[in-house]
Amino acid sequence: MSATLTATTGSDAVPAKRPDYKVTFGRVVRSEWAKFLSLRSTWITLAVAGLLLVGIGIMGAYRYDPTAMRGPSADAHDAVTIALRSTELAQLALGVLGVLATAGEYTTGLIRSTLAAVPKRLPVLAAKVLVYFGVVIVVATAGAFLSFLGGEPFLHGKAIALTLSSSGVLRCLFGAGLYLALIAVLGAALGMLVRSVAGGISLLVVLLMLLPVFLDILPSSWKPDVSPYLPGLEGGAGGSIIALHQESGTLSPGAGLAVLCAWVVVALAGAAYRLLRSDS
Rank of each mutant, 00 (worst) to 15 (best):
P19R: 10
V23Q: 15
V28N: 12
V29R: 14
L37S: 01
S41T: 13
W43S: 07
I44M: 01
T45A: 13
L46D: 11
V48P: 10
L51D: 00
L52C: 14
V54C: 02
V54H: 12
G55K: 10
G57F: 01
G60I: 04
A61R: 03
Y64Q: 06
G71V: 02
D75A: 09
I82N: 04
A83S: 08
L84C: 12
R85Q: 14
E88Y: 15
Q91N: 09
G95I: 06
T107H: 11
G109Y: 02
G109M: 04
T114V: 10
V118S: 15
K120P: 10
K120S: 13
R121I: 12
V124D: 10
F133I: 10
V138C: 01
V139P: 06
F148V: 12
L149M: 03
A159C: 00
I160V: 02
L162T: 02
S167A: 12
L182Q: 11
A188P: 08
V194M: 02
L207G: 01
L208C: 04
L210C: 02
F214V: 15
I217R: 12
S220H: 07
K223R: 14
P224M: 06
V226P: 06
S227K: 03
Y229H: 13
G232H: 01
Q246N: 13
E247P: 11
T250P: 06
V259W: 00
W263K: 02
V266Q: 00
A269C: 09
A269D: 02
G270E: 02
R274P: 04
R277P: 08
R277H: 10
S278R: 14
D279Q: 15
